[in-house]
Amino acid sequence: MAGASRIDMHQHLLPPEFVSALERHGMGAWAPAGWSAEGALAMMDAHEIAAGVLSLSTPGPCLGDESESRLLTRQINQRLAELVKGRPDRFGMFASVPLPDIDGSLEAIRHAYDDLSTDGVVLLASHQGTYLGAPAYEPVMAELDRRAAVVFIHPTHLPGPPAPGVHPVLADFLLDTTRAAISLVLNGIPKRYPNLKIILSHAGGFLPFAAYRVANLANVIDKDLSYSEVLDGLSTFYFDTALSSSPSALPSLLQFARPGHIVFGSDSPYCDDKTIAFFADGLDRYEDLDPEGHAAINRRNAEILLPRLTAR
């Protein structure tokens, strides 16, 4: 691991409790086979990743009734905390919450911060067709703001059938993240809760490319929404580079994101080594970034968000 420098803010785990729950609910195909902490460390060593912040991917912990979802959330978060405790130099954690269960989510946040010393929280972009800016989720956003939380937003399946022949990961996931970001801004979440530090997966979906369109048309649709207010809200987000550090995506992301608001992401183990290498190498080869810019995206911006990982 000589020279390892990256901090991976978009890395997933598949603990046995989650895999068993997926299989119980007929969703086993959603879990890449054979995940282990040892395998994650080997992947990190191969791609010069000094530390990885682990989170649960879609479909999240809400696979059954409320009681089952709360129990699974607790088991996953405790498993995450054990991994971090065993290798604090290599792993961080974004705790899961059982949204749309508000009371269960508030308890999960309390447990994660007060008992498990979590680094942040992962939220799915939508739940049963309701996006994160909805008034129903206000208590969760208020509590996360009180905790000055780093919030990692990950997409899930759109509220509707997929397009025949087009797998959801090809386009739907990008739209889900974009919808969540717009929902948060149009409902004033970043403005009301300025302590939140929200990271959008996969370079924010379509957001950097479409931000000025969104700001202009939001003002046309609703005159109470000013162009500058919407654009400023959209620019408060952080963005990871998972599956996105390409010659076509990086210019848009770098043009839109605020300085210090881009972090490295691998999307392992849902991406294989070849795909991770393709996008990591694309970032390394990008000539419009100077050495300071590369260092900021690969590591320094993440250290500012999560100081515990500094100097690992």
Rank of each mutant, 00 (worst) to 15 (best):
M93F: 12
L234N: 00
F256D: 03
I102T: 14
P32V: 03
Y131D: 03
F94A: 11
V53Y: 11
I76P: 06
P15D: 02
S226E: 09
P269H: 12
H10R: 00
G282M: 10
E48W: 12
P162F: 13
P100F: 07
I221L: 04
V150M: 10
L83S: 07
L234E: 12
I297Y: 10
K191V: 14
T130F: 10
A215C: 03
L243C: 06
L225I: 13
P164V: 08
Y286P: 08
L22D: 00
P159F: 04
L158V: 05
S67R: 15
R192W: 05
F264G: 02
A37Q: 15
E17L: 08
N301S: 14
G165E: 14
D290A: 09
L14Q: 00
W30Q: 12
L225Q: 11
P16A: 14
L123H: 03
V97K: 10
D290G: 14
G52I: 07
G104S: 03
P168T: 14
L170D: 10
I49V: 15
E287Q: 15
A95Y: 10
L289M: 07
S5H: 14
W30I: 13
P251T: 01
G133W: 00
P307G: 00
Y212M: 07
D284K: 15
G60F: 05
Q11T: 15
G129W: 00
R74K: 06
L54Y: 10
S126T: 12
